[in-house]
Design a protein around this nucleic acid. Structure first.
Lengths: 242, 242
DNA sequence: GAGTGGTCTAGACCACAAT
DNA sequence: TTGTGGTCTAGACCACTCT
């Protein structure tokens, strides 16, 4: 990695180092949870100073691509129950306490994508997808009906209904090396249909909060469309703007 | 700023520098929009190296407390129309385009705080507040009814209804040196009351999205409670999780 | 040309974790 | 004791802005 390369790409050295390191994580040269070489070794290998490697790794740590532990090393991020819970699950009770949801799989089907799914996931219409429906409970009470659509060419071997893990992002990562690091959610109000009313123990046409989430993997692929519909009698969707 | 201070507080030098600089921004030694001294000058003044000042300023830039401009200097952040729009206003249309809302002040009253307001803003019940109601239009169509509650001891001189600026955060900053940098929003579903139905041109009991926002200033004071109720026929509340 | 932030380097020492 | 990341410094050079 020479300075000439810098002049060619008009990109600072540390940014080139960062891209290089990200590519190696994407390529699973270093798997989630494993340690990267030390800053000094990476510097020697890439022909830059330790300080330049440090700046690349600091930015990657800020983006949660890696976790740095003093005295131990730098590790590729992995999805833990805690992380997923506190990072992607935004429902809190009236005292701002996060819920620990449980899940009950209602159905798992293979199908062709609808127009809506295709558009959201950037697929050709009629692509093969897997569609999972879940009922989620907060404090043991049915509160969320959720439909998850995943392209079959990304994940083709979901476990049986009975063995489906509560934390899907961890499953994607551990079984397929797909790390969800980013998501966009769009929220609106809808009315419960008969099925949702039945599952949630409410009347038809009761208004629900709909959260539509598109999840993106570390290399930019759209992994999942998740539409959650929930009763906000007791819970709130919480966002911090900073 | 000696190293001994570091040993006393068990805080890295750059973090002490950062706290010091933040305090000077809070105290309006450097007003929003004005330039800080150069890294080198600050280093000399505080008795640390330029690199240590740089690390402090880099973190402050990441937190949007300051803006750094190559070749020009480092400036205290100020609320611009653009910033406020793209940072705090999360409503988009069906093509993910942000709206540019307009506002119409419905009422401005001075009052004692309700239990709800007191709790949200951390006030003693019955504290003096100013309460503003606005109707906000998206693409010229009424879409949001908003009630804003502000402690009178923070802002006591709101302009008349007719002169009320569309961008309140800019007003807080320019007139009172109060910079809103952080907010927490909680979202739920509610039903339109008669007044809301009337203003929004919908029927009573149509479900609305309610966004409750508590805004916090740079020094941690709770500046504003804002409850917005909106029709999500066409718009969506958009969040990026990263 | 002078002044600013941005990048890159090299080296010293500290704090922490494992052996 | 060894190896890791964390902090701090000093100095060089680059890129940008203004006058």
């Amino acid at each position: 990695m020479s300075t000439d390369e810098n002049l060619t790409h008009f990109l600072p050295l540390y940014a080139q180092v960062k891209q290089h390191l990200i590519q190696r994580i994407v390529d699973q040269v270093w798997a989630p949870g494993s340690a990267l070489p030390s800053e000094y070794k990476l510097g020697v290998e890439l022909g830059v100073s330790q300080g330049t490697v440090r700046k690349a790794l600091d930015e990657m740590a800020a983006e949660k691509l890696v976790v740095r532990k003093q005295g131990r090393g730098t590790f590729v991020s992995e999805h833990t129950h805690e992380q997923e819970l506190f990072h992607f699950f935004r429902l809190v009770d009236q005292h701002d306490q996060q819920y620990v949801p449980t899940s009950q799989v209602l159905s798992l089907e293979h199908s062709e994508s609808t127009e809506y799914e295709s558009k959201a996931l950037g697929l050709a219409e009629g692509s093969l997808i897997t569609r999972i429906s879940r009922l989620r409970l907060l404090n043991g009470r049915p509160a969320i009906v959720e439909t998850i659509s995943v392209p079959r060419d990304l994940i083709s071997d979901f476990p049986d209904r009975s063995a489906m893990p509560n934390s899907l992002y961890r499953f994607y990562q551990q079984s397929h090396g797909i790390s969800v690091l980013r998501a966009v959610e769009r929220i609106k109000v809808v009315l419960a249909n008969d099925n949702e009313a039945d599952l949630l123990g409410i009347a038809r046409d009761v208004p629900l909060l709909e959260v539509e989430r598109v999840a993106e993997s570390i290399d930019g692929r759209l992994v999942e469309l998740r539409v959650s519909r929930l009763v906000t009698d007791e819970c709130r969707y919480r966002v911090e703007l900073t």
